[in-house]
Write a protein that binds this DNA or RNA. Structure first.
Lengths: 240, 240
DNA sequence: CGTCGGGTTGAGGGTGATCAAAGTTTGTGG
DNA sequence: CCACAAACTTTGATCACCCTCAACCCGACG
């Protein structure tokens, strides 16, 4: 699959693009790179002159407190551009790190800026991507701020399953999730020990099978209920 | 003060605008409205055809879980456009509510869209505003996810003080904050009872004076230390 | 003067943290 | 293919931060 196809697919979830638009996107200069697992793509404080389109694998964004505690801010799947915001926010305020081995296509900001000048609809689509990003952050705030540990985990699993499904990467109930329980803890604002207990609770409830990093969700509807999950915030519909 | 002046001032914190740009902004059609305290401006699920520029007063954005718990996602001060994202995200995924009596200037999306088409630099500035918004959400996630109650409160106060100061609305160490301890609790992911105890802890530490809704921060540098506050994420500098 | 919203205080409880150790899987080099 | 180390998962015991419930106080306002 050509790298930019993933991007076109992603943008078309929420934006109607015409043939000219998609063609322009497909002509973006893009430098594809393989990055090993657990490696920084960009770091807090850096100034970026390109953005990375995730083509394969998983990456996450995170911040670390003075006290040394890490908080994962978002999980990214193929089609996402985790650091798209650096197009207009020149200093990184967080890290972007690979969770698995990943293929990232780097697109120069200059090219993206030119594209947004030429193709207003693409500009709108990219802007919208960053807005959806923000919508996920909002939901994440609610998750860590107001939900119990079990609910948090259920919500996270439901969200990732759903997003993978929407991108046709996997069925929504079965996927590889290259995160250790420590990573999940950092995503949920919990300790790894407690995540382990919560995983077992979901297992006992018949809502989760997790071996190594293979996830199976035997009862997605009930998981969504337990996880207080409503996909409105994913803004997956093209709305005029 | 003309309503749009506030917006120009706000945008110029992070973006260099020329005379043509500011003139275009100042000619935006804007319908100013007084809204009483504790009143919804827009609600989750609604579709907006305009965005509200906050001219005076405070508003917040919030979500409520199935269990009925409210989480405040952000606090907004004059110059902010809390629902700017609705320009490209047509369904609201959260509520916008006044904290105090507020003056809001409603700008039709159509006018904003026309403006972004005519003035690329303004388009960039507005996009950037939504990106800074997202940066605040990220910091908020860290706050509720990984910081203790005292640190959370200190961070919140430092952030609000700083933002008010940057907008020249108040000095950074003394301001009116029209939030009850219940509101603060919903912002920090705590209960009002515990917020009360934490307020007293900061008082005893000589870091906070809070009477009614008047805030005085006797030692901002130390408050920032305690609150693990670094203003990088506010992206207040114009960077080329 | 009574009510109401908000602040304060106290007692007790629970969710999730911490600390520690043992088990299991994965990867690596011999 | 085995030995070993490293990383991750699991379990147990104890602890603390924050929650819950409840009552009381206070000032504002009718």
């Amino acid at each position: 699959m050509r790298a930019t196809e993933r991007l076109v697919r992603k943008l078309q979830i929420s934006t109607a693009l015409d043939a000219e638009d998609t063609k322009a996107i497909e002509h973006l200069p893009i430098l594809t790179k393989e990055i090993p697992a657990h490696t920084a793509v960009v770091r807090e404080g850096e100034r970026a002159s390109q953005s990375g389109l995730l083509i394969d694998g998983f990456v996450c964004r995170s911040k670390t407190t003075d006290a040394g505690k890490r908080q994962i801010l978002s999980i990214h799947i193929p089609g996402d551009i985790p650091d798209l915001q650096s197009l207009h926010l020149h200093v990184m305020d967080h890290d972007v790190t690979t969770l698995s081995r990943a293929t990232v296509g780097f697109i120069p900001h200059e090219a993206l800026r030119a594209l947004t000048r030429e193709r207003p609809m693409v500009a709108e689509a990219l802007w919208r991507e960053t807005l959806i990003d923000a919508a996920l952050f909002r939901e994440w705030i609610v998750n860590v701020g107001r939900r119990s540990a079990v609910v948090r985990l259920a919500h996270l699993l439901a969200e990732i399953g759903r997003r993978l499904q929407t991108m046709d990467l996997t069925p929504g109930d079965r996927f590889e999730l290259p995160m250790t329980q420590l990573d999940i803890a950092d995503a949920l604002g919990l300790t790894p020990v407690h995540v382990n207990r919560v995983v077992q609770e979901l297992r006992r409830a018949g809502l989760l099978e997790l071996r190594k990093q293979s996830v199976f969700l035997p009862d997605v509807p009930r998981l969504k209920e337990v996880g207080d999950f409503d996909d409105l915030y994913l803004h997956e519909r093209v709305t005029a």
